[in-house]
Simulated assay, not measured.
Amino acid sequence: MSATLQISKRELGADLNKMREQKRIPGVLYGFGIESSPIVFDYNLFAKAYLEAGESTLVNLDLEGKEHKVLIKDVQHDPVSDLVSHVDFYVVNLSKPIEASIQLRFIGEAPAVKSLGGTLVTPTSKLHVRALPEKLIKFIDVPLANLLTFNDSIRAKDIVLPEGIELVEYTGRTIAIVSAPREEEIEQAPEAAAVAAEGQPAAEAEKSSAEGKEEKKKPDDKKKAKE
């Protein structure tokens, strides 16, 4: 079920900062079959819809009783507060496939991480696909169970996409690999222990030598005192 958001028309020239202070966000509605329109909507209701839909699934916009099927296209944030300051909504043609970037969700722990001490590397967080708007989803799941060794990898062509969704980027693109621990990290602990073990007798010998010198000085000091 698609997320729903109530919106209202916004007058051009209105004080946008005042709107934001009132927890209302200015935005633009544009796309298939409509003229571009300035709009405004409640901050908290948008946050809820955005959390549910992301930027790759449809949102139902209710504008004065008329429904529009849209994708959230551009979310701008205030550079200081990081609060949402402006949003663009794109009205889609439900009968025509569109391209979208869908967030990847990595599932489980790679055996090469758990058993071999490697580090998971994910060069990309999204996959570019094409589908009818109503076929789009929020996440594409990527199981990590096949990353058994440092030579294994997951590429775009390996990901199983839901029916109706087509990959439109380079199929050989690396999605996930596990990198081996660096040699210096492996050797660091033994080397540190060896240095500590070697340094301890040396320190003790130096201390004993210093104490011996101190003992030798004592008779001379007494002799000088008698003189």
Rank of each mutant, 00 (worst) to 15 (best):
S8Q: 13
R10K: 14
D15Q: 09
K23M: 08
I25Y: 06
P26W: 10
V28L: 12
L29Q: 08
S36A: 14
S37V: 11
F41V: 06
L45G: 01
F46P: 04
F46M: 04
Y50M: 03
Y50W: 02
G54Y: 01
D62C: 04
G65A: 09
E67Y: 10
I72G: 01
K73E: 12
Q76N: 03
H77N: 10
H77P: 02
S85V: 04
H86G: 00
H86E: 00
Y90E: 04
K96S: 06
K96Y: 02
A100P: 03
A100F: 06
R105N: 15
I107K: 14
S115H: 09
S115Y: 06
S115D: 11
T119D: 03
T119S: 12
V121I: 15
T122Y: 02
P123E: 09
S125K: 14
S125G: 07
H128M: 07
L132R: 06
L132T: 01
I137R: 12
F139M: 04
F139S: 04
V142K: 07
P143K: 12
P143L: 12
D152V: 06
K157S: 10
D158A: 11
V160Q: 15
E169H: 09
Y170A: 14
T171K: 15
T174R: 06
R182T: 09
P190S: 05
A192D: 08
Q200F: 13
A202F: 09
A205S: 08
E206H: 09
A210N: 07
E211D: 09
G212S: 08
K213G: 01
E214M: 10
D220K: 15
K224N: 09
K226D: 07
